[in-house]
Design a protein around this nucleic acid. Structure first.
Lengths: 169, 169
DNA sequence: TCATATTTAGCAAGCCGATTGCAAAAAGGA
DNA sequence: TCCTTTTTGCAATCGGCTTGCTAAATATGA
């Protein structure tokens, strides 16, 4: 067993306890840097923790507006930065120029395989990757902090679609 | 030996022969898709092959202008896309929102470790990574095409700088 | 070599996600 | 409650990426 894959659309919802813990982390981060606790920030964090996928700021904003339509894009944008600061969110750059975020709380480092046809993705964890990070850091005297690993390819469904298209000729 | 690292600033210049081969690949690609051979495209390819690092379109444009100041940004931009199409260049997305390109001819797939303080980077190749790509693709029935792997951290020099700064307090 | 058809070059404009200035509103300590 | 500080969110801006357009360059065929 080399990997522990997990479909993105699995139910990865956090327990109430985890959510409270995450709120705690966020609140103390705010206090530490002298910022205020607001309704909007709370709502954004809660919505964010409910998600399972990697969301652009745009997409999170759309979700947040469901619980409060008056929350603006800028606030979501800035809150996401705060969440990244205290380790609750982390950004992933796929190859389409849009930064996506995923919640990091109670999840271990993992990687993505992305279909270049339809954009769907699979998450997986691989201890080998973490080992390579350690090894290569040691070799070049870097103190490593994180890594990103993405595999690109074509998913089963899109392969079949292509097959059908070819048969029509 | 798990990795075959190579410093980015090594002399990785291609032989004349390799350059001719690359030009050949480019020319037949142009012919295949019904495009024309031009001085500018030639100059851009040649400059590109001389580089050793990952360049943004902007940066390559600056270099190209040294050999011909009248070559515009758009042409470099579009030529880079052509080069990517025929496999001579490939784009890498670091985490600063800028797409960088590196020449791919006569080089095998490799990865990057980037210093988050000063931006310098180290290239390395790791067969383990390629194996993980194959495994995870197989497991989820993807036909994989490529992967990107980046390690982030702090290089030796920047660690020392931080150390000195701390001692001044 | 020259004429003709096709593509290119590069300016300028547009696009789009990321970022910021600002004034009214909200938070929270005294 | 009052007052200071921070936040919010609109609107404007920024910056990299992309494209429309026309004069110029290239390839093809006579």
């Amino acid at each position: 067993m080399t990997t522990l894959p997990k479909r993105v659309d699995d139910n990865t919802a956090l327990s109430n306890e985890s959510i409270r813990e995450a709120e705690e982390i966020f609140n103390s981060h705010l206090k530490r840097v002298g910022l205020k606790h607001t309704e909007q920030r709370d709502a954004i964090l809660r919505t964010f923790l409910e998600t399972h996928e990697h969301l652009s700021t745009e997409e999170l904003h759309r979700l947040v507006k469901r619980s409060d339509p008056r929350i603006g894009f800028t606030t979501v944008y800035r809150t996401l930065k705060l969440l990244a600061e205290c380790g609750l969110a982390s950004g992933v750059a796929f190859h389409d120029g849009v930064t996506r975020y995923e919640h990091q709380y109670n999840r271990r480092s993992h990687h993505h395989m992305v279909c270049t046809e339809c954009g769907s993705s699979v998450e997986f964890f691989s201890p080998e990757i973490e080992k390579v990070e350690r090894d290569i850091g040691q070799k070049h005297h870097y103190v490593t902090t994180r890594n990103t690993f993405q595999v690109y390819g074509i998913c089963e469904r899109c392969q079949k679609k292509k097959h059908i298209k070819r048969e029509l000729h």
